[in-house]
């Protein structure tokens, strides 16, 4: 968060200067009120709102890269913050009624801020739609950032279960193919080239698999080097076709290990199982656990026989 905040040094500095200016201005034109004159309820209400807006602004600036949407959101919140701030300041300092800038700051900054924020939120919505498109094969329908794997940024097992449950419960009867895949001899690779290179291989292989999937497909990291892929509305033949394509793509992927000119080629093993939700109603025994167990079994069967 603090790394991102550094990008917005200028905006934060500007707001800080305006605050200092408004304190200085109010003090030089008005008189400080007596304790008895202060309406504490107003102070808490207006000051609290100003504080909340300041916190929102920090969160937004701290979580976003520079850009138009960020500028709009922070400017909008900034103006609203200034209006509340001046309101709160008025509770402590008696300003003469002839002073116009103080009234302007209160009554004009607020609508401008709201307008800018609204405009900014609209663009943020547009931006989010574009991002969703990018994320699509990693997350479908619902979002839960805590369920995501830190390395590959794909869902973990909990997320996989939730996704399968939505398919399970959905009223639409459909034919679904479920793939379980892993990299052959990944532990050997890890031993040879180290954990950091192993991590990079996993990440890049995951990206490569993503490129070879369709828009409606979803990938999750199961555990270690094992990934699960859901292929909705797919016949078994189509699913096996896609599995074969994934294998070919990974076979031809020339992974470059750091400090070595030699390319490392990997092979996938894939367990491919069919899940017919219509079929399910007649045979109640196919649960999600069962599906995953079947896919894992198929995966082991797909492994090349190792030399004993």
């Amino acid at each position: 968060m603090f790394n991102l905040l550094k990008l917005h040094k200028n905006k934060l500095l500007l707001i800080f200067c305006l605050l200092a200016l408004s304190i200085f201005g109010s003090l030089s034109f008005g008189d400080v009120k007596y304790w008895t004159q202060i309406d504490w309820l107003d102070v808490v209400g207006e000051g609290g709102s100003a504080l909340a807006l300041a916190i929102w602004m920090i969160f937004i600036l701290g979580s976003r890269p520079q850009g138009r949407v960020t500028d709009l959101l922070s400017l909008g919140l900034g103006f609203m913050f200034l209006a509340f701030w001046q309101d709160a300041l008025d509770e402590f300092i008696q300003l003469p009624n002839s002073l116009l800038w103080d009234q302007y700051l209160e009554s004009i900054a607020m609508p401008i801020g709201i307008l800018l924020l609204t405009y900014g939120l609209y663009h943020w919505h547009q931006e989010q739609l574009a991002l969703n498109q990018q994320l699509r094969k990693r997350e479908q329908v619902f979002r839960e950032h805590k369920a995501f794997d830190q390395l590959t940024l794909t869902g973990q097992v909990d997320y996989l279960y939730k996704q399968l449950e939505t398919h399970h419960r959905s009223s639409q009867k459909q034919s679904l193919v479920f793939l379980m895949l892993d990299i052959n001899d990944f532990s050997q690779f890890n031993r040879r080239f180290g954990n950091a290179e192993g991590d990079r291989l996993l990440l890049e292989t995951c990206e490569l698999i993503l490129l070879n999937l369709r828009q409606q497909d979803l990938i999750c990291r199961y555990a270690g080097d094992r990934f699960a892929v859901i292929l909705p509305n797919t016949t078994f033949t189509q699913g096996r076709q896609i599995a074969a394509e994934l294998k070919r793509a990974v076979n031809h992927f020339a992974f470059k290990v750091a400090q070595s000119s030699e390319s490392q080629f990997q092979q996938l093993s894939i367990g491919c199982v069919h899940w017919d939700t219509d079929h399910l109603n007649q045979q109640q025994d196919t649960s999600i656990e069962d599906l995953i167990a079947r896919a894992n079994y198929a995966l082991l069967k797909d492994k090349p026989l190792q030399a004993a």
């Binding site: 199961y222 270690g224 080097d225």
Partner: peptide, 9 residues
């Protein structure tokens, strides 16, 4: 809860 790790490893 993380049985899949046992299974894969």
């Amino acid at each position: 809860k993380y049985q899949e790790q046992y299974e894969v490893n």
